[in-house]
C-alpha cells in the first residue's frame, strides 16, 4: 500500500511537470484567452494525479487481485468501510469546490466578468450603449457589432458612424465590446486565438468583452451548426493591429462606406430583414 502511494506520488509529480510544460490554447493573444489558457492548465494539473491514481487502482486490481487457482474461490467478505468512503467523498468534494471557487473567481475578475454574453434586451427596447456613433479615444472601449447570417460575418463599428466591414480589425491593448447578433438563425461567433465564443441569436444583442494584447491575425469561424455551408463560414482574416494602423484602416473603410451607406439599414442593436418568418 505504501509502495503504491510512493509510485503514485512519483508518477503524479512527473505528470504535473509535464502538464506544466505544455502550451495551452487559446494562448495569449488576448487577456481573456490567457485567462482561459491558465484555467486549462490548472485543470490539467489537478486532473493528472486523479487520473493516474484511478488508473493505477484499476491496473493494480487487474494484475494483483487476479484469481490464481483454477477453481472458483470467494474473496474476503468486505462490506464497506465508512471512513474510507467519507474520505473519498470529502476529497472529491474539496477538489470540486476548489475548482468551482477558482472558476467563479476567474469569471468575476474584471477581464472575464462580462466576457461571456449578456442576455439580449427585450424586443422593442432601445439598443443601449452602442449606438453613440461617436469615435472613442484610444483608451476607451471600442464597440463592434458582429452580424452573423448564412453564411458569413460582417462587422459594424458603432463608434465610427456605423461603418460596416467584411473583416474584423481590432486595435492593440484597447478593450473591445463585441455585440453579437444574427439576421436569420443561430450562429456562433468564434475567434479562436482571442478566446471569444458568443452565440449569435436573431433579435438578441449578445455582449462579449475582449482585450487584445498581441498583434497578428486570428481566425473567425461559426461554431453553431447553421445549415448547408456552415463548414465554410470561416476565414482567418481577423487582425489585431496597432492603434495608428487601425485608424488608417478604419478611415479607408469609412470612405468606402460613404457610397453604400445610404442603402444599409441604420445602426441598431439587431435587425430583422425580410422575409420575417422563414429565411430559406
Amino acid at each position: 500500500m505504501v509502495r503504491l502511494l510512493i509510485i503514485w506520488v512519483i508518477l503524479s509529480a512527473f505528470g504535473i511537470v509535464a502538464a506544466l510544460q505544455l502550451n495551452y490554447p487559446p494562448y495569449d493573444q488576448s487577456i481573456q484567452g490567457q485567462d482561459q489558457a491558465s484555467t486549462l492548465k490548472l485543470l490539467t494539473v489537478l486532473a493528472t494525479p486523479v487520473f493516474i491514481g484511478v488508473v493505477m487502482m484499476i491496473l493494480y486490481a487487474a494484475i494483483y487481485f487476479r484469481r490464481t487457482v483454477p477453481e472458483l474461490v470467494d474473496g474476503p467478505p468486505m462490506l464497506g468501510n465508512t471512513p474510507v468512503q467519507i474520505a473519498w467523498v470529502a476529497i472529491s468534494a474539496i477538489l470540486v469546490l476548489f475548482l468551482a471557487v477558482v472558476g467563479i473567481a476567474t469569471l468575476s475578475s474584471e477581464n472575464v466578468a462580462q466576457a461571456v454574453g449578456q442576455p439580449g434586451r427585450a424586443i422593442g427596447q432601445s439598443g443601449g450603449q452602442t449606438g453613440s456613433g461617436t469615435a472613442g479615444g484610444s483608451g476607451s472601449e471600442l464597440h463592434v457589432q458582429v452580424i452573423a447570417q448564412q453564411w458569413y460575418f460582417t462587422y459594424r463599428y458603432g463608434d465610427y458612424g456605423g461603418v460596416e466591414t467584411t473583416h474584423l480589425y481590432l486595435p492593440l491593448d484597447r478593450p473591445v465590446e463585441l455585440h453579437v447578433t444574427s439576421l436569420d438563425i443561430i450562429h456562433s461567433f468564434w475567434a479562436y486565438e482571442l478566446g471569444v465564443k458568443a452565440d449569435a441569436n436573431p433579435g438578441v444583442d449578445n455582449i462579449f468583452h475582449v482585450t487584445p494584447q498581441k498583434t497578428g491575425s486570428f481566425q473567425v469561424r461559426c461554431a453553431e451548426l447553421c445549415g448547408l455551408w456552415h463548414g465554410h463560414m470561416a476565414d482567418s482574416s481577423g487582425q489585431v493591429v496597432s492603434q495608428s494602423d487601425f485608424d488608417t484602416w478604419i478611415a479607408g473603410q469609412q470612405a468606402d462606406f460613404n457610397t453604400i451607406g445610404k442603402v444599409v439599414p441604420s445602426y441598431a442593436p439587431y435587425y430583422f430583414p425580410e422575409p420575417k418568418l422563414k429565411a430559406g
Binding site: 486549462l40 485543470l43 475548482l99 472558476g103 456562433s188 479562436y192 465564443k197 461554431a223
Partner: peptide, 15 residues
Amino acid sequence: VYLSDVPTDVTLHGS
C-alpha cells in the same frame, strides 16, 4: 469538468 468550467468552456464549447 473541463467543459463545466465557464472560462475553458468558451474555447471548448461546440468543438
